[in-house]
């Protein structure tokens, strides 16, 4: 795949909360147009912070990108308000609270603001075509949806913003493996049919690596590994610590420390 001009380029960003607490440091990543890129890491590694840095912080987060730059289609977007970022063509499917619980499915889709250049009616038709279930559930309050339906609605209403880049935070969380499979296929189909670019943030490395073209691993607020998804899947440490494969015999703690030393540091 041609990655000459990346759609999204995150360059050595540093994010601080409340002006003093640094959550991520020197994180760089690139997402080429039409790619599906996975960002993997454990709890608290800084995945969500990176996503929020891209999609924009609210005043009440009291967070800022304090160093580095984020460029989307050549435009600098760090510290832009979320609705401005969305208007540029980046939509986020958040991890929690991904739908408006007290609004119906139809209203959830209606609430999304569509940029002026896009055609709302056509978008809605497209969303209903991609997720026929949402058309059936139109009058249902979103709070009563099942986990999978919520995720569909979240992706659907993100699509209503006519994005070029879709950020998906924790696609697999709380969902049955079968539904995760289905949603991953849907994302791949969306990418191929709509020319969408996707940045997928996942704890579940197997899900992420199976679908992605390229992968990044983040730990303690830094990118520690990156590479082609297939190659990453072969990587000894990834196999062992993220996929739970590799040595059947139990490792002792010294080996774990050895692993920590073997990681590369960026930035």
């Amino acid at each position: 795949m041609n990655v000459a001009v990346p759609l999204l380029q995150v360059d050595a960003i540093e994010v601080a909360y409340h002006r003093v607490m640094t959550a991520v440091q020197g994180v760089s990543l690139q997402v080429g147009a039409g790619q599906l890129v996975a960002l993997m890491g454990t709890n608290g590694a800084g995945k969500t912070t990176v996503l929020r840095a891209i999609s924009g912080f609210l005043g009440l987060d009291d967070a800022r990108v304090t160093a580095g730059s984020i460029r989307f289609m050549g435009e600098s977007i760090e510290n832009l308000a979320p609705h401005r970022v969305t208007a540029l063509g980046i939509a986020l499917v958040p991890e929690r609270d991904k739908v408006f619980d007290n609004l119906t499915v139809a209203e959830n889709l209606e609430a999304a603001a569509t940029p002026r250049r896009a055609d709302r009616a056509a978008l809605l038709e497209m969303v209903h075509a991609q997720f026929p279930r949402l058309a059936q559930l139109a009058k249902r309050e979103a709070g009563y949806l099942s986990g999978g339906e919520r995720q569909m609605l979240a992706i659907g209403s993100a699509l209503m913003c006519a994005p070029k880049l879709l950020l998906v935070d924790e696609l697999s969380q709380g969902l049955a493996p079968l539904i995760v499979q289905e949603l991953i296929h849907k994302l791949l189909a969306l990418r191929d049919q709509l020319g969408l670019t996707i940045l997928l943030v996942e704890q579940n490395a197997r899900v992420a690596l199976d679908a992605a073209d390229h992968g990044y691993v983040i730990e303690n607020g830094r990118i520690v590994l990156d590479g082609d998804a297939a190659k990453l899947g072969e990587h000894q440490d990834i196999r062992e610590f993220y996929l739970g494969q590799g040595g059947a015999e139990r490792k002792n703690y010294r080996d774990v420390k050895q692993y920590k030393r073997s990681r590369r540091w960026y930035g």
Binding site: P94, K98, A111, A113, T114, C161
Partner: peptide, 24 residues
């Protein structure tokens, strides 16, 4: 109306509303 629905959405979850492109 769209703006009314957006208003209800913003009241319920301002963060998500902003991420859906609503100018809070």
């Amino acid at each position: 109306t769209r703006y009314g629905i957006a208003m209800r959405a913003a009241g319920q979850n301002p963060r998500l509303a902003a991420q859906r492109g609503i100018n809070l």
